[in-house]
Structure formats: C-alpha cells, structure tokens
Nucleic acid binder design. Structure first.
Lengths: 146, 146
DNA sequence: TTCTTAAATAAGAACATTCCTAATTAAACG
DNA sequence: CGTTTAATTAGGAATGTTCTTATTTAAGAA
C-alpha cells in the first residue's frame, strides 16, 4: 500500500490530510517492521519538533479503525506497535525479548469464537489474539551467551 | 479455590505470606466477578490505608504467574481486571460498556495456534485472546434509552 | 527467642496512554 | 481569494502501569 492510496482513503472517509498525518503514514509505509509509538515520535520530531505523542496515537488509531494499520498490543514492558497492512486482518507471534513480531496466518474468530459470542447475544465489536514468547533468534542468543 | 489453598501454593513456591498478600487473595476469593485494580485498591485500603497500588499489581502478577488468577486485558478505557480461577485456563467476552465479562469455553491455542507457533520455532510463553463488544443488557439499555 | 537474609512493602518517579482545552488549519463554499 | 466550519493540533492534565529505592518484615537458621 502506498502513501497516496492511504491518504485518498482518509480523504474519502472525511478525514483531513494534515502534514503531520501524512508524515505518520509515510513513516509507516517506509517501515519494514512494526513501529512503536516512541519510534514514530522520535522519527517524526525531526520533521515536526513540536509534534505531540497524542497526535501519533490519534492518527494511528484512525488508521487502525480504517483497517490500514494493525495494532499489536505487546502487554506491559514496551508499548504497543503498529504496522501498515493491506491484508484485511491477522495476528502475531510477539517476541518478548526483542519485541519483533511474526505474522500468523490464523484468526480464532473465524473458527468457533464468533459462534460462541452470538450464542451469548454478545454484539462483537472486536477482538485481540496474540501469542508471546521467544523467537528463534532470541532462543539461540540465550544459549550462546551464558 | 479457597484462600488457604492459594496461600499454601504461594508458600510452596517460596513466596512469603504477608498480610497484604493474604488480603489480596481473600478479596479475589470473595469476588463474584472480575475485579479491576481500582476495585482491589479501594477495598483493601480500608484494611491497609497505606497500601500502594503497586502492591496490588505485584501480587496479582504473582498469582497470575502461578495460574491462580486470570488477567483480563480490557484494552484502553478502564484498566485490566482479574479473577480467581481454579480452572486451568479460559478467555472472556468483555463488555466495553459495563466492563463485565463472560467466560468463554474456548481457547484458540488448543486448536491451530500452538502448531503454527511451533512451526516458526517460536517458544510460546503465553497468549491473549479476548472478544470485546456489547453484552445483552447493554444492548437493551441502549435501545431503551435514546 | 534472636539473628540473618531474601522477599515484600510504600512512596514516588517514570513511562504509556487517554482525555481536555484552546488555538490552528485544511477543506468547502461563497 | 476571503470566510466559515469542523477536524486537527500541541500541550498539559489525568489515568493506568511499571520501575527504583530505601525500609520493613516473614521465615528459616542459630
């Protein structure tokens, strides 16, 4: 997905195209792995020294609501991470050692979960699913060191 | 699960049995639905006026590590909630309107997810899965009012 | 019981995130 | 182009959560 496509989508949905918002989108398009809020703020303050963290949170939320970015809750420790995503929806394996994440070609809602919610008359708005642990490299590093 | 059982487990694992910790366990044993940190702090400050929120977080984490309580991440808004759990493991439907939660007799890890993680040489430490939305009652209330 | 020590505590700093407000500004329209 | 308006912004206050540190204390050993 390219920057202009995202901005057009935003415009179509009635969102304004501010320089800060454009910069957030560009940073996400450029990124090669999920970014934390801190990553984004640090990077964007070089362009907009006064940019507030709230602006990043707000924009990332808008993009997330539109399904353009995926939000990865990385419980505790480091904050959440975000990545641009053309694909409609997916989950992650998150490494608690290095913070990196791997996409998972599986969503539990598609299986039994949606049905169980309906059974309870529960109006589903969303869901989270993440697996956390140690990635291959971090397991190797741990063994190597000592 | 009763208070003494939990405390024995703690002792067996090398944790001390402090009055504050006992009170946290007792409050959770007594509770009939998941408690927020604020719930716990408010309740426990009647016994220990100086109790810090950190003590609640710490104890709840210990109990969570032991599998004695389940931690329900209720993204944003209201903070996390905790409930005592004798059963090995389960997930929840969380109502974003009233904060209540319903247990879900389903865990995605038991299905495909565990296998997918192994396929990536990913050493699984844990996972989260929650469905959020509006419960039956909150849907009705919304319709009733206007 | 007294001593020792590792664990737990309170307090507050630090950080992540959300919320509020007043000021700015993009976009639509004249 | 100038005006209007609703969205967006920066900034800081307000929460939720974690971390650090100095002090207290439970539990085991003498």
């Amino acid at each position: 997905m390219e920057t202009e496509q995202v901005l057009n989508l935003l415009k179509a949905k009635g969102y304004k195209c501010t320089p800060q918002r454009r910069a957030v989108v560009e940073a996400l398009v450029r990124a090669e792995h999920p970014l934390s809020v801190k990553d984004l703020v640090d990077e964007l303050r070089e362009l907009f020294p006064d940019m507030s963290a709230d602006t990043v949170y707000r924009n990332v939320k808008v993009l997330s609501d539109l399904g353009v970015v995926n939000l990865i809750h990385n419980q505790g420790k480091e904050g959440a991470r975000f990545e641009l995503d053309g694909r409609p929806h997916h989950h992650h394996l998150v490494c608690v050692a290095c913070g990196k994440s791997v996409c998972l070609p599986y969503c539990p809602m598609e299986e039994k979960a949606e049905a169980l919610a309906k059974q309870e008359d529960f109006k589903v708005l969303g869901h989270t699913f993440e697996i956390f642990g140690h990635c291959r490299e971090c397991q190797n590093n741990k063994e190597g060191t000592s």
